Computed example of a mutant assay.
Amino acid sequence: MLYIISIAILLFILYASFKAKKKVSTTPLKDVIIPKHWHQLLLKNVLFYKKLTIDEQKVFCSKMVHFLNETTIRAIHFKLEELDTLLIAASAVIPVFRFPKWNYSNLTTVLIYPDYFDEDLQFDPKTKYRTIGGLVGTGRFEDQMILSKKALYHGFNNKTDKNNTAIHEFIHLLDKADGIIDGVPAVLLEKQYIIPYLQLVHKKMEAINNDTSDIRNYGGTSETEFLAVAGEYFFERPKLFQRKHPELYKMLTACFIK
């Protein structure tokens, strides 16, 4: 019964998303109204934000407002709280914070589940193999992202593990901006750097698979996952990443620091 209800809810959300046109805000960042209480919430929960200057924090919040105005966030089987939406918006802004302008044109809706889920998108506690914390949808879920609330909060609560599921998924969306998720950040990296980048990626993946790297094992499964996993590390522990992987740090800086 829970399965049928879940599918019905998802189909309704998909229908509503496809019927609605994506609204892109044209309000200049400096004119965006930012709720004052956001500042303390973000200081407490988002280390990336805490490290910014006061002026940068204002820009960060303005970009969050734009994202929330453009994107529908829906909670499945629980009541959505403000911090849920703020953490999702922060996850979206972090990878593109240094870009003068960026809209996730390949995203209309973020569905947030209460727990980890399986390949059939089931999150019932009785369901086995619920190991997925986030994914970027394809097919009938095109332009959708699905996140686990537990994974979302874990990514921000643990400030030393180099992992952040939501940032990981938004990096996949950046990768997909050229039409395909393939681990080659064509819209982020100048053409002459793509071959050197891939050569370095294969070298780093070999180290992961030989257990001689501190980059998470999942990054060794494909070029696609390597970009997202390395990107998590880059944003979560930048100083450590620069010290451990200076060449890769320079490459990702060229991608994300515009």
Results as ranks from 00 to 15, higher is better:
Asn209Lys: 09
Phe123Val: 05
Met251Ser: 11
Leu41Pro: 02
Val65Pro: 07
Ile88Trp: 03
Gln57Trp: 00
Phe123Pro: 06
Glu70Asn: 06
Asn157Arg: 15
Met145Lys: 00
Glu190Asp: 14
Val46Pro: 07
Leu52Ala: 02
Leu173Cys: 03
Val32Met: 15
Ile257Ala: 08
Asn69Met: 13
Thr27Gly: 03
Ser105Arg: 14
Thr165Pro: 02
Asn164Ser: 09
Leu68Val: 02
Gln242Pro: 00
Leu29Gly: 05
Gly134Ile: 02
Arg98Gln: 08
Ile76Arg: 07
Val96Tyr: 00
Ile112Glu: 07
Asp175Gln: 08
Val96Phe: 01
Asp55Gln: 13
Phe48Asn: 03
Phe241Thr: 05
Gly137Val: 03
Glu190Phe: 09
Phe12Ile: 14
Ala92Gln: 01
Thr165Asn: 11
Thr53Gly: 08
Trp38Ile: 00
Ser148Gln: 09
Glu236Tyr: 06
His77Val: 04
His77Ser: 13
Leu86Glu: 03
Asp214Ser: 14
Arg140Leu: 15
Ile7Thr: 10
His37Val: 05
Phe12Met: 12
Lys36Asn: 12
Leu83His: 06
Glu247Ser: 09
Gly231Tyr: 03
Leu80His: 06
Leu121Lys: 09
Lys22Ile: 12
His66Ile: 13
Phe12His: 14
Leu121Gly: 01
Lys51Trp: 08
Ile112Asp: 07
Glu232Gln: 13
Pro246Tyr: 07
Asp182Trp: 03
Leu189Gly: 00
Phe241Met: 10
Ile112Phe: 07
Ser6Pro: 02
Tyr193Glu: 12
